[in-house]
Each structure stands twice: as structure tokens, then as C-alpha cells.
């Protein structure tokens, strides 16, 4: 009997939850705010779905009822991707160690 591909995706999902669990526990508490902003940025990989949706229009028709939702989702996800990564970078650049020469 063949295994449904869904089962493979489910396996990836469950194992990723465990990976996430262990990785996030190792995040230092002082970086919890950057953790939230970066998880925000990476969850916007949902833009993948938005791009497929936006390009789903048939030939010559760019804006169909389904592709419009794709375009809207692209804007939202793009705000998040650029905003999320850049604000994380801005925050992380501020974390400095004590200067040795003091």
C-alpha cells in the first residue's frame, strides 16, 4: 500500500515542532523581543502562497477575482518580511558587550 504524501508532510510538521521547541528554549531571554520580530519575518514566507495566487490569472488577465487576493497578500507579507528582518537587524545591532578598556 502506498503512503499518502500527507503523512510525510505531517511528519515534517511534527518534527519541526520539536526542533522549534529545543531551539527556542536555547534562545537567551534578553533576545526574546528580536525572537518575536524574526519569527514574524520568517512566518511571512506565506508570500510563497501569495505569489502563486497572484500569478494564477489566465493569459492576458492579470487581475482576476482570485489573483487580487494574492496581490493583496503580497503587499501584507512584503511589509512583514522587510519590516521584520530590518527591525530585528536594528535591534540586534544595539546589543553590545562591555568595553574591555574600562
Amino acid at each position: 500500500m502506498e503512503i499518502d504524501p500527507f503523512i510525510f508532510r505531517l511528519s515534517i510538521f511534527i518534527l519541526s515542532i520539536f526542533v522549534g521547541y529545543y531551539v527556542v528554549w536555547s534562545v537567551t531571554p534578553s533576545l526574546h523581543t528580536p525572537l518575536m520580530s524574526v519569527t514574524n519575518a520568517i512566518s511571512s514566507v506565506i508570500i510563497v502562497g501569495a505569489i502563486i495566487a497572484a500569478l494564477s490569472g489566465s493569459d492576458g488577465v492579470v487581475f482576476s477575482s482570485s489573483s487580487i487576493y494574492g496581490f493583496l497578500a503580497i503587499i501584507l507579507a512584503a511589509v512583514n518580511i522587510f519590516g521584520g528582518f530590518l527591525v530585528t537587524q536594528r535591534m540586534l545591532a544595539m546589543y553590545k558587550k562591555k568595553k574591555k578598556d574600562k
Partner: peptide, 26 residues
């Protein structure tokens, strides 16, 4: 992650699971 399953997209499934568990731990 839910959308990742719909689109059969590994990157979305992995990311969704990571972010989901991260938020739950916090």
C-alpha cells in the same frame, strides 16, 4: 502551517511549526 499543508510547501510547514512552538514557549 495550515496554509503550508494546503500548498504542500515544506518551507511553510517548517516555518509555521517553528513559529508556532516559539510563541507557545514564550
Amino acid at each position: 502551517a495550515g496554509i503550508g499543508f494546503t500548498l504542500e510547501n515544506t518551507a511553510l510547514i517548517i516555518t509555521g511549526a517553528l513559529v508556532g512552538s516559539s510563541g507557545a514557549i514564550l
